[in-house]
């Protein structure tokens, strides 16, 4: 049996950074470590002949989700004047549950391993596009509808209740045009 060094390195990076995510006392550090974990996952996809998935993983998770979480942590860092810190309670119980989950997942992986072709089949991004816009078109469109609904919902939530009268320039713009017409 040959040992895959590339996989070992990537897997070690993912596991260690994931541990840092849950153990970091500083929420900002936790979010940035999560970025490392997600990058490691992308590297895993790239190793498994899925470059498209790897690219999308970096673009949406590291570029999008982590950035959003950073904003979320930034605006909620102080609550009623008290700094918010990450506290881990019941780490022993968590360890037991995590170990149990690991055993279950390891069993499932071990039982189903022979059915996975090795090496993984190479799917070009054209194949993925055909599958998404052909066989799975309805699911794809329903998902985009869901995302659209989420965007509209977000806009409704943050909309200002008393909108400025349209057409009038803001005070700052008026001041600028007075000085420099």
């Amino acid at each position: 049996m040959n040992f895959d060094f590339g996989f070992a390195i990537v897997a070690a990076v993912i596991v260690v950074s994931a541990l840092f995510v849950v153990r970091a006392a500083n929420l900002i550090h936790a979010v940035l470590w999560l970025g490392v974990t997600l990058l490691g996952t992308a590297a895993l996809y790239a190793q498994l002949n899925a470059p498209f998935l790897a690219g999308v993983q970096v673009l949406t998770y590291v570029g999008g989700v982590v950035t959003l979480m950073i904003f979320g942590v930034m605006v909620t860092r102080r609550h009623d004047g008290i700094d918010v810190v990450a506290q881990t309670e019941g780490a022993d119980r968590g360890f037991i549950f995590a170990s149990a989950l690991f055993v279950v997942l390891a069993l499932v992986t071990w039982k189903s391993a022979p059915h996975v072709p090795n090496p993984a089949p190479v799917a070009s991004s054209a194949d993925i596009a055909r599958a998404l816009l052909g066989e799975y078109l309805i699911g794809f469109e329903v998902l985009s509808l869901l995302l659209l609904a989420a965007i509209v919902g977000a806009v409704v939530l943050v909309r200002r209740r008393d909108p400025e009268p349209a057409g009038e320039p803001s005070p700052a713009a008026a001041a600028v045009s007075e000085v420099n017409p």
Partner: peptide, 17 residues
């Protein structure tokens, strides 16, 4: 890369960190 343009966009997105 087969996904060269996607790679460029992904690297650009990383620049935020």
């Amino acid at each position: 890369l087969e996904v060269g343009v996607l790679y460029l966009l992904a690297v650009g997105a990383l620049g935020v960190l």
